[in-house]
Design a protein around this nucleic acid. Structure first.
Lengths: 112, 112
DNA sequence: TCTATATGCCTCGTTATCCTATGTATAGAA
DNA sequence: TTCTATACATAGGATAACGAGGCATATAGA
């Protein structure tokens, strides 16, 4: 299902940090992983992702390094920092609270 | 837990329509119900709610009528329309998709 | 050879939505 | 009298995601 972009607001950093908490990744790969792992529900645009990565780096939540592949491509990898893991922990708790509050009002059952 | 306001974006209409789908309500009461039913997680501001109600009315999702209480207060009640119920149905499905996609990536269990 | 697609990075301006701040008014309590 | 709760409303500011565009390289196909 296509998701209204307003619903995404406030959640993109959580998604990005979650992926980076498991593995260093470069921007383009992040967009692919989000699409794949959400079963095509999310389609994070580059115009959203790159400014977000720069913002996270500015805040010290991630660090970046360039890597040249054998095929001659340049990739900018991002790595989560300790500070970023703390931020992620908070954001996951926030998501959990938000979800529970929404479901309390909507009265929906939740299928993990 | 206090929720980042960005997370609320795109969800306020769903909350309002959900309450109105069960019972006609006036604005001030809606803010109280949302706070109560979310266990104080949500605190919808009047500056958010009233423009939202007017917008929903303009779109034909709700209708309003004035009611004078015995104590001399004027209350503007809102009633959901058939069109509003359809809208709510779509928004609930959208929320469900969004939540499932988020949890797929975050890898969290969900407690209904 | 030329073209299209996929990969890979980036930024600027638009848009939508929520909040803060403010205004009006009445009832009841301190 | 003054404060709080109730009850409606709007204007302006902040912010985040997106659309659209730019730049560049590798590969596949016509």
């Amino acid at each position: 299902m296509k998701i209204n972009k307003e619903l995404m607001k406030g959640s993109t950093a959580t998604l990005v940090l979650t992926l980076l908490s498991k593995e260093d990744m470069y921007g383009y790969r992040i967009t692919q992983e989000i699409k794949k792992r959400s079963d095509n529900t999310f389609d994070m645009k580059e115009g959203t992702l790159y400014p977000m990565l720069h913002s996270l780096e500015k805040d010290g939540a991630v660090e970046s390094y360039w890597f040249d592949t054998e095929e001659g491509r340049r990739r900018k990898y991002y790595k989560i920092t300790d500070s970023g893991r703390e931020m992620l922990n908070l954001k996951q708790k926030e998501w959990s609270s938000f979800m529970n509050a929404m479901n309390s009002i909507l009265g929906e059952e939740c299928y993990g």
